[in-house]
Amino acid sequence: MRRALLLPARLWIALFFAAPLAIICAYSLLTRGDYGGVETPWTLESFARLADPLYLAILWRSLWISTLATALCALLGFPLALFIARAGRHKNLYLQLVLLPFWTSFLVRTYAWIFILRDTGLINTVLSSLGLIAKPLPLLYNDGAVLIGLVYNFLPFFVLPMFATLERLDPSLMEAAADLGARPLSTLRRVILPLSAPGFVAGAVLVFIPCLGAYLTPDLLGGGKSVMVGNLIQNQFTTARDWPFGSAASLILMLASAVLLAAVMRSRTARELI
């Protein structure tokens, strides 16, 4: 009976997780076909090519941009989550506002940033009409634009777990701190921040991992100049028609994410969280 009830879950995992992963593993060990696809012989060449400094630089750059995006999400998301957690009866309204962007397509939201950031976009038009700048600021098609896009898209993934952590904090702890002579900033630093560690861990994981694999945002806002691992993989399966190399890069990305996640889960705060 128990086995029968577990069957759908097992089938789901086999069909949508294990099988694709096996295919990717197999592809990464094969040779590329002339028009895409894969051929024999089996080889480790794709993995060897990943060690090329060019690709290592892309991997490094992805890690760096994802780290920056995660840090910015934490910097913006923590005060926002704190504000919402203390908003009283308007709490639900603010939470809905945080989730509002999800009502529109990811693609539309990212395109909207092009209209804001481009040379003839909102920011440059306003600044030049005020006479503050002579020629447009280069806001689009660089790392900064990619960072803005990533932070914008993934901020809710930080705010929600942080909010959940902050809302569970016993208000009498804050009162006790004030009672013992702590001003609000001191209470924030000595009580609220240390007790928000589980929220920081959960939020950072939820932002960092999708950032690492992002390809649409760097593609649209980075203008092809700002290549991340996600773009590299996408290119291999489309224009470059090198499926084995794309598969190898995917596996390395997965491995990097898994190692980071495992490190976080082993840390003290995460153990307390679980």
């Binding site: 016993d170 702890l173 009162e175 009672d179 702590a182 009580v191």
Partner: peptide, 17 residues
């Protein structure tokens, strides 16, 4: 509260965990 020279023992103790 932080400007008053009184202190409170809370019902649930409110110890910093």
């Amino acid at each position: 509260p932080w400007q008053r020279n009184v202190s409170t023992v809370f019902q649930n103790y409110a110890l910093f965990p």
